[in-house]
Design a protein around this nucleic acid. Sequence first.
DNA 1: TTGAAAGCGCTAACAT
DNA 2: ATGTTAGCGCTTTCAA
Lengths: 357, 357
Amino acid sequence: MARKPRASSAPGQRVTLKQISEESGLPIMTVSRALRGLRGEVSEATQRAVLAVAERLGYRPNMLVRAIQTGHSMNIGVVLPPIATFSYELLRGVHDELARHDYLPIVHWQQSDKAIDATDERVGELEVIHHLLDRRVDGVIFLPADDLVFDLHVREVWKRDIPLVAVDRYLRKSGADFVGTDDAMGARLAAEHLLSLGHRRIATIAGEERIGPFADRRHVFVETVKAAGGTCTVVEVGKPLMPRLGQLASELLTMKPRPTAVFLAADHYAPEFLAVARTFDLSIPRDLSVIGFADLEMASYMTPPLTTIRQHPYLIGQEAARLVMRRCRGETDTKPVELRLKPELVVRSSTTVPPKH
Amino acid sequence: MARKPRASSAPGQRVTLKQISEESGLPIMTVSRALRGLRGEVSEATQRAVLAVAERLGYRPNMLVRAIQTGHSMNIGVVLPPIATFSYELLRGVHDELARHDYLPIVHWQQSDKAIDATDERVGELEVIHHLLDRRVDGVIFLPADDLVFDLHVREVWKRDIPLVAVDRYLRKSGADFVGTDDAMGARLAAEHLLSLGHRRIATIAGEERIGPFADRRHVFVETVKAAGGTCTVVEVGKPLMPRLGQLASELLTMKPRPTAVFLAADHYAPEFLAVARTFDLSIPRDLSVIGFADLEMASYMTPPLTTIRQHPYLIGQEAARLVMRRCRGETDTKPVELRLKPELVVRSSTTVPPKH
DNA sequence: TTGAAAGCGCTAACAT
DNA sequence: ATGTTAGCGCTTTCAA
């Protein structure tokens, strides 16, 4: 019996293989092969004919359908934390590399408010990865904000045999691939820079120990300073960042004797720290040298311009993208890959020789 | 005859409706209805049973398949220019609002290198929109970098009866929906701020006239100044920005009599402009007031902190997302919507009363 | 090199 | 409230 044609409200009447088939008199299968350019499976004449009709009709392949057929959606899920770290550059790196190979990223930020709303926090958290998985992404690039939550996500992803690459923050236990910065090297560069200027009484405002990169930066920095015969005072700033940071900065600057140099585990701390230093009438870098970590855009605009350790978020994104795509093709061995890009020292005006008195 | 099961390399053996159907003894259709929570079409008992099995099996819907069925992929394409304007905040606004309604953005930056590589520039440009269209996005949010290219994209999108919302840059002819900043109001705020401080001999470094927002900022600023009995020198900086900007700044600062205040059409110009002013031994704001437009993050970190006009990229993104989604549901009339968010004046330390002599 | 048939996993449309 | 059937637009499989 006659059924109504599917509505779908398509006045533009989507062009399908069937239409090309009818127009050209060739069977659908031939059209499909020609359009995909399957060499050796279709004669040149046929191919040209098909291509011509397709072009005339303005045909565009339906990747949704193709995806359910081939198992490849050509989309990569990207999970980012709610805070804006260096995510934008990272994302661009991911995107550019993916796009070069006909993949595209589906971005999903973790929303802080959602987790709070949910009665069971974990349910809310998994929503993010499920939204991606439901769209049948071929792989996932993940910048973990919280280690515990990350584990849940990884499990959920691996259950489906989909590759997952962690970026920026490494989680030892997870066994996932990782691309990030060589934080140890960065910390060493920072320490050596200060040491070479002559500093020996040094301090660091460290990030939370439980966060991988912060742990590395702290330990390597302290060790390097100590190995050179210096002393290093460590204060840790956690969350919430803002009231605590000012307080810690004050404590550090009232120490007697006061350190001659401070290593900030992140550039983010710099504006507040410099503000506090100003209230102590300290001139940077004359009275106190300050070095950061990240090389955020603002580092170069601060007063004074901040000496810091430059990370390479764009390149990290690129490498992460390459890695997932390789995994999608099953080109790599089963051992988890761990890639750490070398950071570099950027000397600006916030560091100099220690004051002499 | 027995066929091989589709490979697809699925050791995790994807869970499908059929499996739930078999496990529960209920027909697939009932399972489908239960899972979608179609109220009134399924008994509570059945629903509970289905949900339990689905949960146990770890079922997740396949949105690809659902999309070809319903015509809704629940994905919105987002096209961004290669330059990093305020895109990140905008993107987050778009994302958050979409995610709240189970949509997700598929982001595609236009790549500058691709266009150059392609023999026919237009082909390269259309690739971006095709990548999105091939994935059957339900709508597109577009931040146009180039007007001519944009027109081609719009045509391509509309051919498929898909809603398109332009953000930030408005293109009169296109007839597309638009969400952006009220540039006229911003320019007026800037002018009135300088006028109220007492400035009358004013200049502006304007952006390219052919770019909508820049045209608005320039004209309204000039008119407002003139209406108050002031004079306004206009210099336009195009592409490439960098060598030209320094030169124009020099010209402006050697004028006699020198303007007492300058309106920069974009915060981006500020670092270079301030650098040039410094070479002229001008103290900002004592000798010269400077006001920008955008309120980029760096504005607050500059020396001196820049007075500027704050835009609301996050909110613009949100509104754009709301608009596409409404269009996707066909909830709006056919007239193109034009939404301009009000910017606000942020007074910092780069503006003050004019020098008297 | 080409063709016919059988799905992919799901939902809309029509029964009952 | 629950079944049944026919697709969605494509690719894979198998046969010619």
